[in-house]
Every structure is written in structure tokens, then in C-alpha cells.
């Protein structure tokens, strides 16, 4: 009789301990719960009480009967989504590392795979860039991208190019294209027209060479224009605000009129 009581008392104390472990463990934060420990303790506790553990279907059925204020499955779903997001983040990070390593290696070795990656990157960037607004009119070109503007004024203002631009051009001649490029560390700004005889370039911080000053000279708007005509093309060179300009036209008259009507962005 004494042994039975001792056994019951011993079992009770063990059950209490197991219950305490389960309670303490489940009171922790979701991420910190040791599920295996809880599982083991529940199994042991149920064996001690001579009960069998419920199957998954039975658990779901019973949960369904509990009058929760919110659906418990929502919590499960949120937890699952969290785990999924973490997995995606890990996969993305690993892929990014691989891409970065391949990128560095291929650039260093200049191999074909590097070209392929570069093409892929360019295609990707172009895809992203499709949202750029297209106005039609004047096209701005630089080494990295091409943008369209309505007018040359808008282009120069937006691109922050401090360059004189023509406010007059002969009939039928229109500005089509402007560019801002770097040629061996020298910035070159150009304004191109639909007629290639009309062309303006500006080289910032460049002086006029003395030899060019041997050409014919005319003063327009206080600017000394050194010009020459050859093979149906007339070109005038001058310096304005330390920037060297070269204006090309089809005749001296048109050249002078273009230079006379050059404007500056305020």
C-alpha cells in the first residue's frame, strides 16, 4: 500500500515537473521555444497518465471546436509566411553573392561570361528605364543614356549644360540632337541639326589657339569670331566665358546670323 502511494506521489511530482517545463517553455517567445523539448515532455506526460497522443486530424477537429475570437490558422499562416520570406531572403542573398563574385572575376579576366553578364545587366537596366518620359523633339545623348526633350532650352536647363544655343536657324533646319560626352578627359558638348552642315560644339575651359587667329576675323556681339570657308562649309571659332565654341554653317551669312542669335540659358 505504502509502495503504491509512493509511486503515485512520485508520478505526481514528475507530472508537475513536466507540466512546469511545458509551461515555462511555451511562455517564451515564439522563436525561442524548444519544440522538441515540449514535444518530448508532452509525450512523456501523456504516457504517465496512460493516454494516447492525438492524431493531426483529431487535433485540427478539436481546434475547430474551440471558440477562438480570431482564427488560429491565421497565426499559423503568418508564421509560415515569415519562414518563407526568410528562405527567399537567404536564397536571394546567396544568388547576389554568386553574381557579385562572378562579376568581379569576369571583369578581372575579361571573359565571355563577363560580356554576357554585362549584356544581361544592360538589358535589365533598359527594362527598368522604360518608364522615362518621352517628349519627342530634341534628343539628349551622353555615354550612359539617351533622353528626349521638347526644346533645346529645356534640355540645357534640365541637363545643367551651360552652353550657348542658337535661337535662329535657316528655314527647314532644326536642332535634333545634343550631346554631352567626355573625350579623353575633355568634355565636349555638341548641338546637331537635321542638316549636318549646321553644327555647334563647345569645349569647356579651352582657349583659342594663336594659329586659329590667323583666319579671317569679324566682331559679333563683342565676340571676336575667327572664320574660314572651305568646300561649301563655313566655320567660326570663338571663346565665350572661357569656353571654346565652334559653329559650322553652309555660308558666312548664315554663320554670322546664327552667332548673332546665340542665346544663353539664364
Amino acid at each position: 500500500m505504502g509502495n503504491i502511494n509512493e509511486n503515485i506521489h512520485g508520478n505526481q511530482s514528475l507530472r508537475d515537473k513536466l507540466s512546469a517545463i511545458i509551461l515555462l517553455e511555451t511562455a517564451k517567445l515564439y522563436e525561442e521555444i524548444d519544440c522538441d523539448l515540449v514535444d518530448e515532455c508532452i509525450d512523456f506526460l501523456m504516457e504517465l497518465e496512460g493516454r494516447k497522443r492525438l492524431g493531426k486530424k483529431e487535433i485540427r477537429r478539436r481546434i475547430g471546436k474551440i471558440p477562438f475570437r480570431e482564427n488560429i490558422l491565421k497565426f499559423n499562416e503568418a508564421a509560415r509566411r515569415k519562414v518563407k520570406a526568410k528562405r527567399i531572403a537567404i536564397v536571394a542573398a546567396i544568388m547576389a553573392i554568386i553574381m557579385a563574385i562572378i562579376g568581379v572575376m569576369s571583369i578581372a579576366s575579361e571573359d565571355i561570361f563577363g560580356d554576357l553578364l554585362a549584356k544581361f545587366g544592360k538589358q535589365f537596366v533598359e527594362q527598368l528605364d522604360t518608364e522615362a518620359v518621352k517628349y519627342g523633339g530634341v534628343v539628349m545623348y551622353n555615354a550612359d543614356e539617351t533622353r528626349d526633350y521638347d526644346t533645346i532650352e529645356e534640355l540645357l536647363k534640365t541637363e545643367k549644360i551651360d552652353m550657348l544655343y542658337p535661337s535662329w536657324l535657316p528655314e527647314g533646319v532644326e536642332i535634333e540632337f545634343a550631346s554631352h560626352t567626355v573625350e579623353f578627359e575633355q568634355i565636349v558638348c555638341t548641338i546637331c541639326c537635321n542638316d549636318t552642315k549646321f553644327f555647334i560644339t563647345m569645349y569647356p575651359q579651352k582657349a583659342l589657339n594663336d594659329e586659329i587667329k590667323t583666319n579671317l576675323c569679324i566682331k559679333i556681339n563683342d565676340l571676336e569670331i575667327y572664320y574660314f570657308s572651305e568646300n561649301g562649309v563655313t566655320q567660326g571659332n570663338f571663346v565665350y566665358k572661357n569656353n571654346l565654341y565652334s559653329v559650322t554653317a553652309d555660308s558666312p551669312d548664315n554663320l554670322f546670323k546664327i552667332i548673332e542669335n546665340l542665346k544663353e540659358i539664364n
Binding site: 540632337f177 555638341t190 546637331c192 541639326c193 549636318t196 549646321f198 553644327f199 560644339t201 589657339n209 594659329e211 586659329i212 574660314f228 572651305e230 562649309v233 566655320q235 565652334s246 559650322t248
Partner: peptide, 9 residues
């Protein structure tokens, strides 16, 4: 396509 031309020093 030729965009333009100029003589340079």
C-alpha cells in the same frame, strides 16, 4: 549617320 563635322586644332 553623320551628325556633324568641324575642323579642330
Amino acid at each position: 549617320t553623320l551628325l556633324g563635322q568641324e575642323y579642330i586644332y
